[in-house]
Design a protein around this nucleic acid. Structure first.
Length: 269
DNA sequence: ATGCCTAATGCAATTAGA
């Protein structure tokens, strides 16, 4: 099974690119971020025609997350993170699909730092860590996928020294990311490619894609019950070179089939 | 420190992105 995450940066403006990529990559489950669309303008008909069912949590102009599936019913388990009833941003949606819990997230950018937006990012991260702790405690197979707006290490940014004061690379944000991982999550891309330069975002500015001046900020995290099923992982970086494309590229993993339940040995009579 | 580019809103210029 192939599971992907893609920050589309406007699901309506990006619809031709999204459909082209779905057709080419054939992912089974997809988490989308930055829909930038109110719920009633989500392009569900075009997505159904492409063979996918979907659930989504939109919002006018900003944010917005969705989960697509072509392999089975999407049983929504949550929209919005617990811990702050006043949080109006659409940044989290969660569902059970084919026996896997999929949490699709769009973590706040947090710039400028310091400031209220950075404080919001840290608070949102704390709420994510709390919820992720509850999830991983169930022992279920779980994927947390999305735009985390964090480069975890120096390897994940083309010029680390220029990003030290940025909300995407600040020490307290990276520390939060590793507090999350320390619960037992596997960073799928890094686990399979420990030494590679891997980017998932290239700024529209300064010809960043052509210079490969990128960042790795879109991640797929696997709970222990799933980590053993990880077979391959990658970034569809070429999509970033398409016309009218997002500033992010799709990121994906392949999971082996659910391990068949071990047959109980016959008890001696 | 700011612009560089892009989307959404809504029709100019602002906000936000990262």
């Amino acid at each position: 099974m192939k599971v992907a995450t893609y920050n589309v940066n406007g699901v309506n403006g990006r619809l031709p690119v999204l459909l082209r990529w779905l057709d080419e990559a054939e992912p089974d489950i997809v988490c989308l971020q930055e829909l930038k669309s109110p719920d009633e303008r989500f392009p569900i008909e075009a997505i159904r025609e492409a063979g996918y069912d979907a659930i989504w949590h939109g919002q006018k102009s900003w944010n917005g997350v969705a989960i697509l599936s072509r392999v089975g019913e999407i049983h929504e388990t949550r929209r919005g993170l617990p811990g702050d009833p006043d949080d109006s941003h659409s940044r989290y949606i969660e569902a059970a699909v084919r026996g896997i819990i999929v949490g699709g997230l769009y973590l706040p950018n947090g710039n400028p730092r310091p400031g209220p937006k950075f404080d919001y990012k840290l608070r949102w991260f704390d709420r994510l860590i709390a919820h992720a702790g509850e999830l991983i405690g169930t022992g279920l197979p779980i994927i947390l996928a999305g735009d985390f707006n964090v480069m975890p290490t120096e390897r994940d940014v083309y010029k680390p020294e220029r990003w030290l004061d940025d909300a995407l690379f600040a020490p307290e944000v990276r520390a939060a990311y590793f507090r999350l991982l320390d619960q037992g999550w596997t960073d799928a891309l890094r686990a399979l490619h420990p030494d590679e330069t891997i980017y998932t975002f290239w700024d529209y500015f300064r010809n960043a894609y052509a210079r490969n001046a990128g960042l790795r900020i879109d991640h797929l995290l696997l709970s222990p019950a799933l980590a053993g099923r990880l077979r391959s992982a990658g970034v569809d970086a070429h999509v970033r070179g398409w016309e009218k494309t997002s500033d992010h590229a799709p990121v994906w993993i392949e999971l082996s089939d659910r391990p068949s339940r071990r047959r109980k040995a016959k008890e001696p009579a």
